[in-house]
Design a protein around this nucleic acid. Sequence first.
RNA 1: GCCUUCAUCGUUCAAUGGACAGGACAAUAGCUUCCGGAGCUAUUGAUGGGGGUUCGAUUCCCUCUGAAGGCACCA
Length: 566
Amino acid sequence: MMEKIEEKIIRLLRGAGVAGEITLTRPPNSEMGDIAFACFDMAKAEKKNPADVAKIIHDALRKRRSSFVQRVQFSGPYVNFFLSTSALAVLVIRDIEKKGTRYGASKIGKGKKIIIEYPSNNTHKEFHVGHLRNICIGNVLVELYKKTGHKIIPVNYLNDFGAHVVRCLWGLQKFHGRENPPQNKQKWLGDIYAEASIYAKEHAEEVKPELDALQGKLEGHDPSVWRLFMETRQWSIEGVQALFRELGVVHRAEFYEKDVKARGQEIVDALLKSGIANVGEGGAIIVDLSAYKLDIALLRKSTGAGLYLTSDLALAEKKFKKYSGAEESIHITGMEQNFYFQQLFQVLKLFGFHEKMTHIGYGLINTKTGKMSSRSGNVILYEDLRNEIRHKVKKETTDRHADWPKERINSVVDSLTHAILKFTLQKHEAEKNIIFDIEEAVSFDGFTAPYLLYAIARINSILRKSETRHQKSEYAGLTAPEEKKILFFLAAYPQIIQKALRDYNPSTVAKYCFDLAQAFNEFYNAHRVLEAEETVKQARLSLIEATRTVLTNALELLTISTVEEM
RNA sequence: GCCUUCAUCGUUCAAUGGACAGGACAAUAGCUUCCGGAGCUAUUGAUGGGGGUUCGAUUCCCUCUGAAGGCACCA
């Protein structure tokens, strides 16, 4: 909860003779109190029973008066404080009114430079909901780092030069050489990649030599494929750039595999020379990492061609050179690459590279029919999903607002569609697998984006109708438990930001948004704002305006924009 | 075979080692002369099995079972 609140309670506890570090918690429910102090540590230090310590502290506190604390109780090993709602409101609402959109921001990251790399998509492949999940996580981390005063550098690494490209080009030449590309070229390439992958898997013996030969030509910049490569590469990049704009992804720089691969091969040579790497089965270059329980890492194919690892070595070097002084580099990928990144980081260490590298692996997105893999072709493409959700949202919005002009409907529908897409993925922890249920995502009930935006629309509606600009800083009218509950959620916001950042966990913010919106809806249902007695009305207007400010702020962290009406 | 991650109401997700394990969906029963019912209230309902550490374990350790992912020329 908010520092100022803690300070006041801690001062009281110090006065009652509590020494050492004081950690405050919240009781499980509001009937037990608003803030709790657990006496376990103190009891241990003084070798007393925690319940006895609680009683002693409680008795000492009875002699002290505070307008902030209405009542103190002890319950077993806990000392519980009941706060005055209006005094709490003075602290919380004034702070929010003063700071506005900066409420919750901090400077804990001042002077710290962080590189974050996402979504590291591949050219020549489909853009599916896994990429959307990647972006959802990355976008939120970027906002969290900004909010805490870090210098955050979002970059993308496009894998435009690996075996997947070879497979796509091979499939294109073999099966689609005479076709005219359709409108959505990026999607077309993705389809061809999926098709070629399946074919290559089923006819491995026949196809493999052809693929190897093509990869050799590609890496050698052979004119027979180079033009086609550069052209198709551009289609992919432009297609994905459009999706990035749509999803609010802004990169400081792009790195391409084709630009780092050669340097990667040099590093492999250096590793070989220094004896860290050696020649393995069939002439491939490997590093034995079994001493670190990481098996064997493959640095170069026996054909001489590079692998991801080859390029990633050079990429790490390049990034830290370009952004000197960066203290961490974060990578976001599917968790099937967890092991790979452990290997990569270990090889880098052996190479003498000691920068802090963090890998965030997120779980798979399954549908009810099974895994979505870009190999099998059984994928939900981002654009298909977005269109399906948009269609349903549009129907609902049109039904509700038959009188709205077309542009207004489309604008609200776009906001809602993207809010639904993002929030559905953000409400889960990164490492959890998600079963993506389209029906559930599109539903407007429960722990969903429309629920949050609807709460804001309700607040907007009340504030619009309140006509007179309400006076601020009068909160004596706030006494109800529903109001106190909102105040505590508002007070918790700055710590939510820090918790989410510490755990690299966007779902903390998503959950918070829902809790706050739910607290508001409970209040809304139990109390009137506009018809309340004047001082109460003024106080409640301030309360809901502060709620809107914080909820909007929190949604901005999720890169979800709100709508005035819906 | 080895490694990693995970296992909580019917379903889906929460709980810095602390109070009675909390939401959402579904189900059932209610709430609209009311600031927007995409809402609110109530009821039913769960920590996979077995050990251990601890005053205290959903959380930490061991083990079994089950699931997902990975383990040399894929990314």
